[in-house]
């Protein structure tokens, strides 16, 4: 299989911070807003270099989303930054009316998504954000897999007109995609070609899928690994082509099964190419405090869970 080397683990939120800083230098229309989490979101470098274009809103996320919407009237490209929990559920109606329905060019950037935020526990571990955001008409939903990809995605969404939800995380995580790899919104990345099963992974789970792929290869199973960094619009062509080759699929995401990536793939497959699908996701539960790796294990998002799901999907093939 294709070998992927961890160039040194880094947090994806730092990829966002670096991308934002670079954008600030490239594009004077880019402005950033933060709700009292500048350090956590790694927005401090942007705030230091562009104080006039950085807006500290305080702990007032609803106000932040609507101020961002207003800033687009006048041609600004606002990036809002807070945790995934406060970027979505807390401000859903603000996003719905003032951003999505009004088709405003707001980039909602959400850190600390999923279980891997760890010790803060379920109040902060948002596992529903992808579902909430993908249900909004016109919303683009992106969940990059590592530092480099998050940085590239941050830069790419500035050039994409319309609302975007960009989701990333807190922990240091293997950084393996090439520096400077172009980020194409809506275009899935084929990381490893395989013939027995297609593993569609997003965010942190992409690395786990690659690890699972290695284990499967040791058992003589050829797994195709596809990085679905853009959950909406889903790269339907890539998903259907892959399942057309392998005949079964696994989805892997740090999100609730209801409303997540697996749910989008299930919908697509059942409509256009029925095939066995196993979903690696949190199943209708809130998280809890713990270390990221402990939580992934307990909630069934670990490498062996992906291996087991792949074997199950293959076994279900007729």
């Amino acid at each position: 299989m294709t070998e992927y080397i961890n160039q040194g683990s880094k947090d994806t939120r730092s990829g966002f911070g670096e991308g934002l800083l670079e954008l600030g230098r490239q594009n004077p229309e880019v402005v950033a807003l933060c709700a009292d989490l500048t350090g956590s979101l790694k927005m401090d470098a942007f705030a230091r270099e562009f104080p006039d274009r950085f807006i500290q809103v305080g702990i007032a996320e609803a106000n932040m989303i609507c101020i961002a919407a207003g800033l687009t009237i006048g041609g600004k490209i606002p990036f809002t930054g807070t945790f995934a929990n406060f970027s979505t559920g807390r401000v859903y109606d603000q996003i719905r009316q003032s951003v999505a329905y009004s088709d405003k060019n707001v980039k909602i950037c959400a850190s600390h998504a999923g279980l891997t935020l760890g010790e803060d526990g379920a109040t902060h571990q948002n596992l529903e954000d992808i579902g909430m955001m993908k249900m909004l008409p016109g919303m683009t939903v992106i969940n990059p897999c590592d530092f480099n990809q998050t940085k590239a995605a941050t830069i790419a969404i500035a050039a994409h007109p319309g609302p975007v939800y960009l989701r990333f995380g807190r922990p240091k995580w293997p950084n393996f995609t090439p520096v400077g790899q172009p980020f194409v919104i809506g275009k899935a990345l084929l990381l490893n070609e395989g013939s027995d099963v297609s593993v569609f992974a997003t965010g942190h789970m992409v690395w786990n899928a690659l690890e699972a792929c290695k284990i499967l290869a040791g058992q003589g199973i050829s797994a195709e690994v596809i990085d679905i960094h853009t959950i909406k619009p889903l790269d339907e062509e890539a998903v259907l082509a892959s399942v057309g080759r392998t005949g079964c699929a696994v989805s892997a995401e740090e999100h609730m099964r209801n409303g997540g990536l697996g749910d989008s793939i299930a919908q697509l497959l059942s409509l256009k190419h029925p095939a066995p699908l196993e979903m690696v996701a949190v199943n209708d539960k809130f998280g809890e405090s713990g270390k990221p790796e402990e939580l992934l294990k307990k909630y069934g998002l670990d490498v062996p869970d992906i291996v087991a799901a792949a074997l199950k999907a293959i076994a279900r093939k007729q």
Binding site: N63, C66, T72, G74, K76, Q94, R96, Q97
Partner: peptide
């Protein structure tokens, strides 16, 4: 019309954003 409204409580924030954009511009 530059913004959808109806769900209450959002317009003042939006107006602030538009006012900030005017200052930046």
């Amino acid at each position: 019309i530059r913004m959808s409204s109806g769900s209450l409580g959002q317009g003042l924030s939006v107006s602030i954003g538009a006012a900030l954009a005017k200052k930046l511009n």
